[in-house]
Design a protein around this nucleic acid. Structure first.
Lengths: 204, 204, 204, 204
DNA sequence: AGTTAATCGAGACGGTACGTCTAGTCTTATT
DNA sequence: AATAAGACTAGACGTACCGTCTCGATTAACT
C-alpha cells in the first residue's frame, strides 16, 4: 500500500482522484474519538461512522488503525516541541526537554504512549512512528549536542546517541512506566543533575 | 477479585478447592503460546484450548489476559537479573545493567515490552507490573546507590530517583522504541560514559 | 453440519445444551421478516437482529439462509395441503390439487417459489426442500394413483411419475413462471380436462 | 431506462453514440463468466472487469444483472428449439418437446432456470423473460395445437392454455425441481402417454 | 457414608468488530 | 455525450473472540 501522504507524484492517474476532504474528515474523526478512548479500544468501524465514511475507504489508504492514529496525531501535532535555535545549545536542550515533558504530560503523551504500545506488536507502526516523528528530532538533537561540545567542551561519549538517550530516555520511561511523575519538577531536577555532571551551570 | 497468587488466607472455605494443577497448566500454556505470538494476538480462548481448560476457569481467577501473562512471566522468570551483593556498589550496578540488557535483548524483553504496551490502556496492568516486578528492584537499586555515595562520594541528586532513571531509562527506551540496538556494546558504552560523568573508573 | 432438526440422539453431549427457545425465536423472526421481503433480500444479519440473537448462533446451526427459511416454512406450514384419505382416489387428487393451488396462490406460494429459486444456485437447498417437503407427498400421490388405477381402471403410463407430473407440474409452472393465473378457475379447468382425458367424470 | 436492444430509434442524438462493440463485449464477458458460475454469484463488478468496461456503463444500459444475463442468453441462443413447420402438428409438438428437453438438459437449461430464479424476487426479470423468450413460443404452440384439433380432432379444453401447460409444464418442473431426470427417456414416455390420452398414435 | 458447596470441562449464548466484497453513485480526463 | 478508471457511502458477508451462562461431573470438608 502506498503511504497515504504521498499522493500521485507524476502527472495523473486515471479514475476519480482521492478525496482530500474525506482524508481530513477521517483524521479529524479519529482525533475526536481519541479524546474519549484509548487507541486500543478505538475501532475502524467507529472511525468510519464518526467520519461518515465507508470502512473500505479507510482500509484503502491505511494498513492499520495505528497508522491512522499516527497520521491523525501528526495532523494535529505540527511540532509543538521545537528545538529553540536562537539560544546557547545547553539552554536549547534544557528548554526542549521542558517543553517535551509539558507536552507529554497531557493527552498527546497518552497518545504517543499508546502508539508505542501498538508498535510492540506491529513493527511497521514502530518504524513509521520513528521515521515520521522521532528521527528528525534525533538529528537536530545530535547537531545541537555537537555544537555544545564545540562551544563549552562538555564531555561527550564516542557514540553521541549515548548522551542523547541519557537526556531523553527518562522522559519516555516515566511516560510509559508511570513509576514516577512526569512533571515540571522532574524536568528541572533531571536537567539540573545532568548539567552538573556535564560540568555546566544549569539554566535558571 | 482476589489476587490469584493469594490462595486461601483463612483456614479453609467450603467446597471444592482451587486446582493448583489447573493454575499451573494455564500459565504453562500461556507461556507456550507466547513463543509464537504477541500478547496482543494471544486470546483467552486460545489459552483455554491449549491448556485443556474452560474459559470460565481463567476468568474466575484473572481479570484480564495481561494479568495472566504477568503471572506466566513471573512463573518462568525467577529473577534472572539479580543485583550482585558481594561486589562494590559501582560494579554491582554495572553488572546489573549488563545482565538486564542481556535478558531484555531476548524473548523476555519482548514480553516485558508487550506487557508495558498492554498497560498503556489498562492502568491495572501497569500497576501490577510495577508492584510485582519493578518496585522491589528499584528499592534495591536505591540502596546500592546510597551505599555507592557513602563509599565513593559520587555526586547524587537530591531525589535519587533521578539518578536511578538516568541509569536504567536508556535500557527501557531502546527496548520499547527500538531506535538503536539493545546489545552488549550499548551496555558497555552507556556504563562507561555515566561512570566517567560520575568521576568513577568504569569497571573493566 | 448436523441437520438442526436432529437434536442429540444419544444420552447427552458435554457443554451447555442448545437452546430450544432460541431456535424457535430464529424461525419465528425469519417468518415475520418474510412477510415484508423476499428470501433473496432477507439477510442473516436482519434475522439475528429481529430474533435478538447473535449471528454466530444462526451460522452454528444452519449452513445457509435458505435452510433457515426452509425450517421456518416447515415450522409454520404443518402440511396445510393434506391428501384426503376418506374419499375416492380421483376425488382425493382433485381436492388435493385445489387445496395446493389455493395455498400456493398466497404467501406460502411466494416463499416456496423463492426457496426453489435459491435452490437453482445451491443444490443442497433443492435437495433439502425435496426431501423434507415434497418426497413424502409424492409417495402418497403415487399410492393414490395406483389405487385409482385398480378401482377405476384409468390409463396409467409404465412410469407412474409421468402421470404424477402431468397432474402437478402445471401448478408449479404457473407458480414459478406466472405466465397465467394460479387460481380456482385454473384448478377446475385443469382437473376437468385431465379427468376427461382419463375417461373419468370430473368431480363437481 | 430504454430497453438496451432498441439502439437509437430517431435520426441522431447529440454526443458520443453508444458503442456497439462495448455492448457486445459486455454480453460476451457475461456469457464467458456464466460457464464457471451461477447467475446469483455473478456480479456486475466481475462483468465489468472481464469486459474491460466501467461499471457505470453497464448500469447505464441495464437495470439489473439478470437483464444483462437475459440479453447475453438471447445473443447466444438464437432459438435452438424451433417448432418444425413442415410436419403434421402432432409430430411437430413431439419433436419440439424433444428438442426442448435436449436443450434444457445442458447449460442453457441451467441458465434459464437461474433466470427464472432471479425472477422470483424481481417481477421485471420474469416479465422480460416471458416476453422475449416464451410468449412468442406459446403463440406458436397455440396455433399448432389449434391446427392439430382441426386435423385430427383431438380433445381440447375450452381454454387451450390448459393443454399447452399439460404438454410443457413437466419439462419446466423437472428443470427447476430436479426431482426426476430431464432426459430423452422422459421426453419419450411423456409424449407417448399424453398422445395416448389424446387418442393419437405417438410418433416413433 | 451422605450432604453440601465450590470447582472443573465443555460449549452455547448475545454481542461486537474484523477485513472483504459488492452495490450503485460520483468524479475525473479522454474520446 | 459516452467512456474507463476508480474513489466514494453503505451495508452484508462469514469469522473470531469477548465475557457470561448453563449443563453434568468432580472433589473435598463437614456433618
Amino acid at each position: 500500500m502506498t503511504p497515504p501522504t504521498t499522493p500521485a507524484p507524476s502527472s495523473r492517474r486515471p479514475g476519480r482522484p482521492r478525496s482530500e476532504s474525506t482524508r481530513r474528515e477521517i483524521l479529524a474523526a479519529t482525533w475526536r474519538l481519541l479524546e474519549q478512548q484509548t487507541v486500543q479500544s478505538l475501532t475502524i468501524e467507529a472511525i468510519a461512522k464518526e467520519a461518515g465514511v465507508g470502512k473500505a475507504t479507510i482500509y484503502r489508504w491505511w494498513d492499520s488503525k495505528a497508522l491512522v492514529v499516527i497520521d491523525a496525531f501528526m495532523e494535529h501535532h505540527v511540532m509543538k516541541t521545537p528545538m529553540p535555535r536562537d539560544v546557547p545549545p545547553g539552554e536549547a536542550i534544557a528548554r526542549h526537554i521542558a517543553s517535551l515533558v509539558r507536552e507529554y504530560a497531557g493527552r498527546s503523551g497518552r497518545i504517543v504512549a499508546q502508539i508505542i504500545a501498538e508498535g510492540q506488536s506491529d513493527p511497521v507502526v514502530l518504524r513509521e512512528l520513528r521515521e515520521r516523528f522521532q528521527d528528525g528530532r534525533r538529528t537536530v538533537v545530535r547537531e545541537v549536542l555537537e555544537e555544545w561540545q564545540r562551544r563549552d567542551d562538555i564531555p561527550v561519549p564516542p557514540n553521541i546517541e549515548i548522551l542523547s538517550d541519557l537526556l531523553y530516555a527518562p522522559v519516555y520511561m516515566r511516560l510509559l512506566l508511570g513509576h514516577a511523575p512526569l512533571d515540571k519538577a522532574f524536568a528541572r531536577q533531571h536537567v539540573e543533575y545532568v548539567w552538573t555532571l556535564l560540568g555546566q551551570t544549569p539554566p535558571a
